[in-house]
Amino acid sequence: MISVAAVGDLHVGSDVRGHYRKHLTGIADRADLLLVAGDLTRHGTVAEGRIAADELRDIGVPVVTVLGNHDYHSGAELEIAEVLRDAGVTVLEGNGTVVHCDGTRVGVAGGKGFGGGFAGRCASDFGEPEMKAFVGYTKSFAARLRHSLRSLDDADVRISLTHYSPVKDTLAGEPPEIYPFLGSYLLAEAIDESDVALAVHGHAHKGTEKGVTPGGVRVRNVALPVIQQAYAVYRLSEASGRR
């Protein structure tokens, strides 16, 4: 069994410097690794990226994160990723990593992801170039996620980590009109093609924690306002799989 701590949407700023880190004391007694599902910052500035890096530095367990839409807001996403990496945090953007936890190889693949909506109510790759760019971005990310999850074939347990949601279950509580800006079924389709034990995401602050992909993979929305605690802990075994 491994214990995975997960949280999203920290939205740090200079006014809350050090606040989140206080809650990470003792995390090594409760979890083997921490996943952060994006939106570490509010404005996406490098200064906020440094604050986020300081919150997550040397907490006693490996930290794997993706960026969120807020982290892209100032066009400094590459620099933010760099300051996080300098603090020892693994930052995924369409790729994967394997974390060794007490003899178990935990594979995590992911990235920010993007929107588009859910089957039957979604944007199509059709029409104006702007629309094609919108849908094309999600399609291209989903292709990388699919490839990265498949490449984790030497992992004992596989986890998908995104900012945007792969399913609409975990958006319940958000206005349905904005679902296409909160996630895409293309992410779930990619997840369902590998043996994934858990799909973690954030972004939907008014959503709900628990959902499942059409293929039966458990999905958890760990946005801070949803879980209302510093992080949620999920215990997984090599046998954890589809429901």
Binding site: H19, H23, R218, L224, P225, Q229, A230, A232, Y234, A239
Partner: peptide
Amino acid sequence: VVAVLEPEGEETLS
């Protein structure tokens, strides 16, 4: 204002 509470409990996914 979102209250960040101390983490408690866990969920086992089997």
